[in-house]
Design a protein around this nucleic acid. Sequence first.
DNA 1: TATAATTGTTAGGCTAACCTAACAAATTAA
DNA 2: TTAATTTGTTAGGTTAGCCTAACAATTATA
Lengths: 235, 235
Amino acid sequence: MLIFVLMLSFTEENYLKSLFQLTVETALKEEAGTNELAAHLGVKPATANDMLKKLKEKKLIKYEKYGKSSLTKEGKKIAIDVIRKHRLWETFLFEKLAFSWDEVHEVAEQLEHIQSKKLIDKLDKLLNYPVSDPHGDPIPNAKGEMMILHQQTLAEESVGHQCKMTGVKDNSSAFLKYVDQLGLAINKTIKVLARHEYDDLIEIEVNSKRVSISPKFAENIFVVCTTCKKKSRRE
Amino acid sequence: MLIFVLMLSFTEENYLKSLFQLTVETALKEEAGTNELAAHLGVKPATANDMLKKLKEKKLIKYEKYGKSSLTKEGKKIAIDVIRKHRLWETFLFEKLAFSWDEVHEVAEQLEHIQSKKLIDKLDKLLNYPVSDPHGDPIPNAKGEMMILHQQTLAEESVGHQCKMTGVKDNSSAFLKYVDQLGLAINKTIKVLARHEYDDLIEIEVNSKRVSISPKFAENIFVVCTTCKKKSRRE
DNA sequence: TATAATTGTTAGGCTAACCTAACAAATTAA
DNA sequence: TTAATTTGTTAGGTTAGCCTAACAATTATA
């Protein structure tokens, strides 16, 4: 029996992944604009426009002229699969090959496009079916199901409250090295000591030391509040 | 300090790899023809011709109009690097992910193009610096040095002599499954019992059983003769 | 050595993925 | 509600890697 598999190029996969990250994953909106998507992918809007038409043709996205775009069920399935591969590879690099967490992303960008269902399932098994990657991002399972994480950023945490770091929003090497330097890491306990009106800096306590961070920095750290025990979804 | 790395496409890497396999590796000749190379890569001669000009321009091959092609020192270095990656990945799939030896080639064809020196060196270490892959082919080390193997095929072995299987020439899944079926494997001891003039079949003994094989089959099995103790290079 | 067969090249076309420049639609602000 | 700004589209161009068809050079054969 022949199974027809829709073979997508690396580029097409990357468009679906970007669209997923801009919409479903952050759960902030349902659709993304052409310019926004182009910027996220590092191409010009005209280029993204061509691809949107093509992906619509293939029924992987919903798109109307001058409108915003969103993934179809099928498109979402593919995007999740790419993300699953990306995060499993990151975990592999980190756990089995002793890469540091700021090095894994770049290599995983290449590895995520390897086509072999068997490979990825075996890798999943080797890693003992991890649910999150070195950055704290959830790894979809073989069925495409993934944990919902990252309800809140450190920027949103109230003064006086304590929280635990669960992940990062920015995966760039530069940011991650900075995070390392400040002594922060996934699962670290952080206490918000103060917010300074004067220059917007936030003062936190981590590893029993006081550290000042910028709002920009705080927005890129995901936390779960341990003071308010119950979980709250971002609205 | 900026290091300028000549970034090659997957396609360019594949041309260099093919050229290496058709010349240096089999050690039968110094150069390969355009049609031959095209056939090896599964493209038309006109396509290969374009690429040969491009690779000459980049000083990775020697090529003159209507002449045969060969690798320059730099081209050979890159080809060996691709082959190193291919064979390390095959070994990884076989040893760490329990792939069978007929499944590894296809996936390694994709993995061999991942760009990350660190990745490949860590992989090498994880596998404990293997010198040959699941098919018995030599794996170049980080310096590009590789063992010379495969001096002789089973087709060349004398009647009455005993030999040990060291590898296969054909890496196709179909051939490798056939090898498995006959009870052959790397390091198996094989005795050549007879050659039948009538239909050219070769009778061998393996696992204490008599098996008949075709000349075509025998040409794709590499062996080292244990009867003639000393090693002999193919002329 | 002339001719046939093989091998290699050129010219011209195609598609995917990018670009710039010009323009059109939609949204925001005056 | 018009004008300015932002956002999105179209047209046309580029490069890489493939193709076919026609032709040229080389090699083998009669």
